[in-house]
Design a protein around this nucleic acid. Sequence first.
DNA 1: AAAACATTGTTTAATTTTTGACAAATATAT
DNA 2: ATATATTTGTCAAAAATTAAACAATGTTTT
Lengths: 210, 210
Amino acid sequence: MNKDSISRAVVKRLPRYHRYLGELMESGVERISSGDLSQRMNVTASQIRQDLNNFGGFGQQGYGYNVEYLYTEIGKILGVDKKHGMIVIGAGNLGQAIANYTNFEKRGFVVKGLFDKNEALFGKKVREIEVLPMTQLKEFIADNNIEIAALTLPKHEAVKVAEEIVGYGIKAIWNFAHTDLQLPKEIVIENVHLSESLMRLSYNLTRNNR
Amino acid sequence: MNKDSISRAVVKRLPRYHRYLGELMESGVERISSGDLSQRMNVTASQIRQDLNNFGGFGQQGYGYNVEYLYTEIGKILGVDKKHGMIVIGAGNLGQAIANYTNFEKRGFVVKGLFDKNEALFGKKVREIEVLPMTQLKEFIADNNIEIAALTLPKHEAVKVAEEIVGYGIKAIWNFAHTDLQLPKEIVIENVHLSESLMRLSYNLTRNNR
DNA sequence: AAAACATTGTTTAATTTTTGACAAATATAT
DNA sequence: ATATATTTGTCAAAAATTAAACAATGTTTT
């Protein structure tokens, strides 16, 4: 009744608070009020205060919030204070982009392996990460404490691979395939459906200008 | 009062309906009821009916919805019945992935140009699309009827480039940079913040299993 | 040290979104 | 041709989300 009472809408906003606080830190800002932050983020101050209060009182009356402290606390809530082992399955451009993106690593998401079924790619390296054959998935996941798998492959393969790796103990799937995965409910699924994003853009483009 | 009365939540769901209807079409299904679709999509039938009715009555009592007709109509609403000229700015892995992804083209989003500031990439081709220098942006946008720009570059560059191309007549920005763009309100902005997506995953991973 | 000011945490109200219910309309079966 | 079953579109109720209001509390100024 505690952890599950946090609404999805709130969780959706947390990373954005984290990002803004990180930027404030970089700019050397030490404290900020909900009112000030609300203006920068283009949301209401009330929403900020209420969102934060789902997790505890991080501020102080008359003062506001300590930027660094709040950043750290939200980081803990989001779980970016811990390291998370990750693999990328599908070593196309998108898979490589993710493996290459060092910013994820800064937040504790460490890409340890990159997999593909295409032999031509085996041995190719992205940063220090070598492309491995799918046959090594099981062993690799077990040996390297992998929690998260990013699936950057065509939808039909994604469905099969997802079921396979769930059997190997994967806990969360970052799904870039254009399909919904049907998996046991204890598996965390986060979808990135780029087509849908582009269609929303298209909708707004179509409606805005006519 | 008509076009703007459609809630954001509804718009967010439309592409998913479109996807499911497309898959039904491929499987040769000709008609479907809201109840049947609701089970497949894991939403309520009521929501489907109400969402669709924002745009008109597409179904028939006692029969349901004609799959192909509904697919087409939602496509029109989303604006995927028309072609949209698009460029990708930032020819890294992510930019190349988008330029490569032929599925977007099927829905009318035609990538006509790929831009980068890195000379080493000039002339490199992704499919038929050549990497061009940023200095040609203005002319290219004007000459090729470009509406949409996907920004796949670091945040500080993204901010600058966004402001620049808005001056060249770009109507919509598909923003992959980890920052919010501050642009005139008539410019459509669709953000794809992968870091935030990954943090939401992390949140659920952290909370679910403890 | 006192007064004035700022700002949170929290309660209450307003708004939005989702769900449930059902009459009206159509399709299918007999 | 009639009766039965299905299913929409829409209205009303319920739930969730967002915004406003404000007392309590700490900060800053004088």
